[in-house]
Amino acid sequence: MAALPRRIIKETQRLMQEPVPGISAVPSETNARYFHVLVTGPEDSPFEGGLFKLELFLPEDYPMSAPKVRFITKIYHPNIDRLGRICLDILKDKWSPALQIRTVLLSIQALLSAPNPDDPLANDVAELWKVNESEAIRNAKEWTRRYAMLN
């Protein structure tokens, strides 16, 4: 089978040696293309104080195709649905092979700081975010406390 492309090895090493603040990505012991990801909720967002678990998978033709990323921790966010799927342009049609695991995860962290209810994936959440933002933020904080603060 194919050896792990050197780019993936390099990215993995750099993620370990120079981790991005608030983000950790560790490859699975059994599959070097599968990463266990932890992202801390950004300050001054309803997700602050939460620790969110995600999974990231590098498809066989990465970096020509985008990584597949999904939230495992439940999160109340207009661009993330109940299955944890993320609506983010760079994971879809705006992917560029010059992007990397770290830039993808930074973008996801930024999405937590700046929810975009006009491009929703979770329609009910987005709807509430638009008509009653303070209630939506209250829900997001409650979900963060309930699902993303295990200790």
């Binding site: 089978m1 194919a2 050896a3 492309p5 066989e60 033709d61 020509m64």
Partner: peptide, 21 residues
Amino acid sequence: DIESNFNEGKSECKLLVAGAI
């Protein structure tokens, strides 16, 4: 890559070339 796989006695190997496997 091909040469090292060949020398290791593998029966096949995969390459990612120009975005295709």
